[in-house]
Amino acid sequence: MTQETIALSHDAGVTRLVLNRPQVMNALNSAMRAEITAALSDLPQGTRCVVMTGAGRGFCSGQDLTDASAAHDLEQTLRREYEPMLHAVRACPVPVIAAVNGVAAGAGANLALVADVVIASESASFVQAFTRIGLVPDAGGTWMMPRLIGLARAAGAMLFAETITARQAADWGMIWECLPDADFEAGVTARARHLASGPTGAYRAIREALAASTQNELSAQLELEARLQGQAGRSADFVEGVTAFLEKRAPRFQGR
């Protein structure tokens, strides 16, 4: 698929997916949703981490309100276009970092929050803007937000549609990290390279366990942990990790 609304690049195991409609603050239209879904479902060979960010001043301003085809039937747009995109983020075989470089509003905020790790610049912000136009939070927001910050804060954020600063989001545990603007690009790159050089199989298992933990009872989660740990314990990365530890050197994980 030719990318018209996103830009892709790959370097040192890191695939960078840039939402590339800066003239509309990277608002999501049908083409962008399809391109994000396709890109995450068919990553370049050698990808061990994905960084998703926005071009220009913002990360993503949410649904493109000028997209008449989406506005005609919001329910079907969510089912046919948003759900595959969000599932593609969650099902990505490698960790996904959302590098929030500016405002993340509405569905744009929730696209960021569905990633494995969210790193924001200090000048970035998040807003569940849906009630400002008489809508209900979607794109997984009503699932993610209560789990990240609790029901009370999630309800306030959605009902009042007030802006949450990046610093506030980090303090609440909504995101992993808030970085000074001057350090943002270097910080994201360092985090991405760390993941790209790490044990990809273990990362995949961690993501599976965390996803299951929201529904499993303790006994089921313990069984899952044992199964995943058994697989990890038979991997070449485990052998390399132990060998490197004993030899007092940095491990060289193969990512299988």
Rank of each mutant, 00 (worst) to 15 (best):
M1G: 11
E4C: 13
A7I: 04
A12Q: 12
G13M: 11
N20C: 13
N20Q: 09
P22K: 07
P22Q: 09
M25Q: 14
M25C: 08
A27Q: 09
S30K: 07
D42C: 12
L43P: 13
Q45H: 11
M52C: 04
M52N: 01
R57I: 11
R57P: 07
S61K: 05
D64Y: 08
D67S: 10
L74E: 11
R79F: 01
R79A: 08
P84Y: 02
L86M: 14
V96C: 06
I97F: 03
V103K: 15
A104Q: 07
A105V: 11
L111K: 04
A112I: 00
V117Y: 03
S121E: 09
S121G: 15
S125C: 12
R132P: 02
R132E: 11
G134A: 09
V136S: 12
W143Q: 01
P146S: 09
A157L: 11
M158W: 03
F160V: 09
I164F: 07
A166L: 05
A170N: 07
I175H: 02
L179E: 06
E185T: 13
A186Q: 13
S197G: 15
R207P: 00
S213T: 09
T214P: 02
Q215V: 10
L224E: 05
Q229A: 04
G230D: 07
G233I: 00
G233M: 02
G233L: 00
R234K: 10
D237C: 10
E240I: 12
G241D: 11
G241R: 07
R249P: 04
R256D: 14
